[in-house]
Each structure stands twice: as C-alpha cells, then as structure tokens.
Design a binder for these strands. Structure first.
Lengths: 248, 248
DNA sequence: CCCGTTTGACTTGTCAGACAACTGACATTA
DNA sequence: TAATGTCAGTTGTCTGACAAGTCAAACGGG
C-alpha cells in the first residue's frame, strides 16, 4: 500500500464534529437555535447520521436541547461553569486551583488486618482477613485544619514504600502517578455527623459541631474496590456542590 | 397500512431501544460482548442507525465500551446500579420507588417579598423587591419526619392557586405537570449544620443533632433561577450518594 | 521447523437519500 | 369568535451500501 505518512493526528470524523460543535455552541447564546441538521452536516462536512450521533450525546450531556419537529437549541450553559463533586479530585488539587496553600498534618500510616467494617467497605466479607494499609491525616489549608481523612487500601495495591517522603496527602494522586491500578469511578455517600472528642480536637472545633462526612469507595476498571475512605470536613471551608439533572 | 389502534402509550423507538438495551446489559456480565450491530438491530426491531445512536449514549455514559473493528462490550456496571444525587427527584418519587409511604406535615404557604438572602439565592440583588411564594413543609416517611423543606419561588412562576389540594410536597412535580417553566438543571450545595430548637422540634430530634443541609437553585432552560430551596435532612433515613469520575 | 506476510472474515464507522412524525403558524370555515 | 384544515420546516427513522479497523488462520520462503 502506498505509505501515507499521516500527519501527527488525523482525527476520525465524529471527533472533529464534537470539537467543531463545541466551538459553535460557545459562539452562541443559551436558547439560540442551531441550523437544521442537513445544513449543519453539510457545513461540517459529514453525513447527517454522524452528526446526529454527536448531537445526541450533547443532548444527553445537557448541552443541547432537541425538540422533535421544532429544532435543536443550545441549553443553559450552567453545567460547565465549575467542577463540582462529580469529579474526583484531591483536596490538594482543589486548593492549588484556588490558589491556597495546603499541607498535611498528623500523618499516621499503619499496616495491619482490616476490621470487619473496613473489610466490608472494601467489598469483602466482614470476617475476611485482608491485609491493608491505613493512612490517617489532617489536611490544613492556610493554617487551619479543614478535613480529617482516613484511607484504607489493600496491601495488594499499595504498600508503605510507595508513599514517598513528599506525600502530599492524596492517595488518588499516588495511584494516578504510578499508573496502576486503573481507576474508573468512586461511589461517595454523603452524611452529616457530630464531632466526637477525637475529631473535635484534631480539627480544632467544639465538640458536637456538625461535620460533613463523605464515605467513598474507589473502583478500579476491573470492578474491584481499591480504596475505602472516610472523610470529615469542617463546614465553611470547602463548598461542595452537585449539578442535578431534571428527569422528564 | 394495516390500521394499528395504538395502545395508551406507544413509546418512540429510541426509548424502547434504551430500555431493551438496559435490560439486555443487566443480563450480561461486565466484559461480555454484545451481538454485532446488524444482528442486535434486527432483534430489537429497529434500524442500525437508531440502535447506534443509543449505543453511543450508553458508551458516553460509561455503560458500554466500543472498539472499532472489534465489538461492543459491557463495561463495569457500577455507574448504573442506583440513581444518586445527580438526578433531581422529588422525595415523594424516591419514597415511591422504594415502596415507602410519604406524606406532607406542617404545610405552610406564604406570599410576601423576598428577604435579602432569598433574593440573592434567586439571583437578584439583595435589595431587590421580589414577590415570592414560600412553601414550608415537613416530609414524613413511614410516620417519621425525615426532611424539612423550604422553597422560595418568584410569583412569576408559581402562585398559591397552582398548588392543588392534593399537593404532594414537591414543587418540582408541580413544575413538571404544568409544563412551565422548562427546567434544565439544579445546582445544589451540600452542607452540614446543627439542629436549632425550631428544626429539632419539627423533625423530632435532639437539639444539636447534625443535619444534612442541601441548598439548591433550580434553573430553567433560559438560565433563570425559578426555585431557591433549603432542605434539612435527618441522617439515616435517606442515603445520598454521588458517583464521581476520575479525571486522567 | 520457524517466522513474517497475506488473505479473508468479522466488526464498527461513515455515507447518501428517502420517507415518517411532529410542531407551529397561517388560512379557512362554521 | 372559535374550531378546523393546511403547509412548510424540523427532527426521527429506515434502507442499503461501502470504508476502515482488528484478529486469526492460512500461506510461503528461509
């Protein structure tokens, strides 16, 4: 076959269309109507079928609104304004983005067998003997303690040696840096609880203060739980938010 | 054409396909391969084009993985197990799904001018004079109070008359039923706070109990805030959870 | 026997053109 | 006036075909 030294990247049509469409939407205002599909397809140089597949994903994502027999419109642009809880990000990363200085206090690492609750949180039977690495620490931002974090990770995925001296307090970052295991999603439960004596002291708040409690299980691509974590946040320092879609 | 007396609800093809496909996936295990598109399309009784649009949204959502020239596979099943906080659903709807009986207690409706905080929550200036409808109520599930809700809606969108006698406690449902305004998304802030005397009494918990507080702004398609609401939840009755994506 | 190459079956990606179904506004009629 | 019919414009669906990617088995020369 004729060798064809393709330039660095020649994207397949549907990727090009996604980018072009995203650009187009950026230039329009919410509520504006897109050109009809046949026209738009011609403008973008693809078939209507290909365009439609892309349009559908944009609609699914909430960026566009399509109305049968009427047209396609750019929806409210709100969903992309800021990243909320739906992306998993380390506290350090968040602080960096906001231009704040974060540091790790009270780092405490431990290797032992999981307690029944911990084993269950990792997806094992309560009486399973699971070798785990426990990482406890308090994160301070601008000098004030804001969060108490506890990660439980099976030794299979992480050992004490993998935590370098400059551990920034994020297990997530360690996983991402070492490239394994491959992460997919995290399921996070949202709770509220009162500060016990221990947490009150560590977080420097009065006993009984309401704390936001996030319990999450981090899944790898092969559906195994690689990290079970419990986090307590002092209200007022971080704003957690979620964008919720209305289902017809 | 053969006359076909359409039964009450005849869903459009792509909706049927979505449901059928979801069922099919449920019966398979992660990693399993789907039948080739032409076969599957025939089985589901739609064209390949329609099937492909649906397949694409499933892939986008992370439920399926498609590989050009290879096949379509069931991905990790985690994202679809249960609906979390990311869909906006009324408490009544949630309770219904779970087979629980929910009822409205302490319904209290009021029409007046918005306070500065309320005006701000609705996207107006703090000193703006906004005519609003205030709806306060406590929702009980199985006889126990679980949530205290307060909705603030500009009179433009809702008036006391729109609330029928069988108001089930959900402003969302009223909006959806009357078809206007057209809703897009809700931005919800997640906080924790201690029960004051008032809420302690209403929710029948000790004073100082940690409550989960959700403050949300409901946006219409034309990017206006149509409902500002503050909700307090008693821990332990509802499980709020979020699925968080790992960003490479 | 071994190893690189070619071939071919199979799958997803894209295309073109046509018709059906839906919406909204205007014209028509009772 | 109010209900009804009509029509243009748009999205939804269908059909059949070809392009492009992947994998493995068959093939051939060393």
């Amino acid at each position: 076959m004729a060798l064809d030294l393709q330039h660095p990247k020649i994207q397949p049509p549907h990727v090009q269309v996604e980018e072009a469409l995203a650009d187009l939407i950026k230039q329009l205002r919410p509520g504006d109507q897109l050109p009809p599909e046949p026209t738009l397809a011609r403008q973008l140089g693809v078939s209507r079928a290909t365009l439609r597949e892309v349009l559908r994903t944009f609609a699914e994502r909430g960026t566009l609104v399509r109305r049968h027999g009427v047209g396609t419109f750019v929806a409210s642009r709100i969903p992309v304004l800021e990243t909320g809880l739906e992306v998993l990000e380390s506290l350090g990363g968040m602080a960096d983005r906001l231009g704040l200085a974060s540091e790790v206090a009270f780092l405490e690492v431990e290797e032992r067998l999981a307690t029944p609750t911990e084993a269950e949180g990792l997806g094992f039977a309560r009486d399973a003997a699971v070798d785990v690495l426990i990482i406890n620490r308090v994160i301070s931002v601008e000098g004030e303690p804001v969060a108490d974090l506890r990660d439980i990770v099976p030794r299979t995925y992480l050992s004490q040696d993998d935590l370098s001296h400059d551990f920034r307090g994020s297990v997530l970052e360690v996983f991402l840096r070492q490239g394994a295991p491959l992460l997919s999603t995290s399921r996070t439960q949202i709770l509220a609880t009162e500060a016990t004596a221990k947490f009150a002291q560590r977080l420097d708040v009065p006993r009984g203060t309401a704390l936001l409690k996030l319990v999450s299980q981090l899944y790898s691509c092969d559906e195994r739980i690689v990290d079970y974590s419990v986090a307590y946040f002092v209200p007022g320092h971080f704003k957690f938010q979620v964008l919720r879609k209305v289902v017809g």
